[in-house]
Amino acid sequence: MIKVLIVEDDPMVSMINERFLKKVEGFELSGIVNSIEKAKDAILIYKPDLLLLDIFFPQGKGTDLLRWVRSENIKCDAILITADRNTETVEEAFRYGVVDYLVKPFVFKRFKESLIQFKNRKCSFEDNENIEQETIDRYIFKEKNFESEQIDDISDMKGFNQRTYEKVLEGIYDMGDENFTAQQIAENIGVSRITARRYLDYLEKEKKLEVEMEYGKVGRPKNKYKLKTED
């Protein structure tokens, strides 16, 4: 089993990462910590194979932890899971050898692909004393490209805006495991209920959301949405 340490100071995000991790075969959770200093202690105690690491912490950054891991010559890989899209941060992360960089909000399929790619590479290295160029190339260039979970630019579609699309996704991610309505998303991100409903219906057609009808005693039934986490 591949031992994983989650380093994240947001309890809701930690919960989602833990839930997603449990759905991927071959991985086990060693622990969850919410600070850089606690992560250092946990790494020395649990000796994890992989970190699921955020960037922003009240004291320090995730890249500071990566720098420490490398300086201590600790055999531990990392996948960054963060809302930080800054180019310098991404470059620094790969400079310290992260195996992947997931930008919040993300969906389960992308998370799973990242872990499976890591597991396949690790198992291949452990099973072979010498690695052929073909095997190296397979993990450098990947056997297949990841399928994008978001279209390149929804602005190409009449009546849709890419920034609003991204805000709706962020609002959905903030809801965590909760079922939600178009009205709740509208209030959270500052758009009209009609606008939120259009984007939610589109995401449901993309099979990123599940939707069910909630019937009250009076009035029309409400659409209740939930992030779809299955393949």
Results as ranks from 00 to 15, higher is better:
residue 22 K to T: 08
residue 111 F to G: 00
residue 208 K to D: 08
residue 205 K to G: 15
residue 96 Y to K: 02
residue 219 G to A: 13
residue 36 I to C: 11
residue 120 N to Y: 07
residue 147 E to G: 03
residue 147 E to V: 05
residue 61 K to D: 09
residue 135 T to F: 02
residue 221 P to C: 14
residue 172 I to R: 01
residue 99 V to S: 10
residue 134 E to K: 07
residue 115 L to T: 03
residue 21 L to Q: 05
residue 34 N to L: 04
residue 171 G to F: 04
residue 36 I to V: 11
residue 89 T to W: 01
residue 24 V to L: 14
residue 198 R to D: 13
residue 63 T to V: 13
residue 84 D to S: 10
residue 180 F to L: 04
residue 154 I to D: 06
residue 23 K to W: 01
residue 124 S to N: 11
residue 97 G to R: 09
residue 113 E to I: 01
residue 56 F to I: 08
residue 127 D to I: 01
residue 61 K to C: 07
residue 114 S to Y: 04
residue 105 P to L: 08
residue 176 G to P: 03
residue 13 V to Y: 01
residue 85 R to K: 12
residue 67 R to C: 02
residue 178 E to S: 14
residue 135 T to K: 09
residue 22 K to V: 02
residue 98 V to Q: 07
residue 115 L to Y: 01
residue 143 E to N: 10
residue 125 F to T: 10
residue 208 K to S: 12
residue 81 I to K: 00
residue 184 Q to S: 10
residue 108 F to M: 09
residue 208 K to F: 07
residue 105 P to V: 06
residue 135 T to R: 04
residue 181 T to Y: 07
residue 212 E to Q: 11
residue 121 R to G: 02
residue 40 K to S: 03
residue 30 S to H: 08
residue 135 T to D: 11
residue 90 V to M: 13
residue 193 R to I: 03
residue 84 D to R: 01
residue 226 K to D: 08
residue 13 V to C: 05
residue 2 I to H: 09
residue 132 E to S: 10
residue 212 E to S: 08
residue 29 L to Y: 13
residue 116 I to D: 13
residue 4 V to N: 06
residue 195 T to P: 00
residue 230 E to P: 05
residue 39 A to K: 01
residue 171 G to C: 06
residue 186 A to V: 04
residue 229 T to W: 07
residue 101 Y to L: 04
residue 56 F to K: 02
residue 112 K to V: 00
residue 157 M to Q: 06
residue 161 N to M: 04
residue 159 G to S: 08
residue 76 C to R: 01
residue 98 V to T: 10
residue 155 S to K: 05
residue 23 K to P: 05
residue 197 R to H: 08
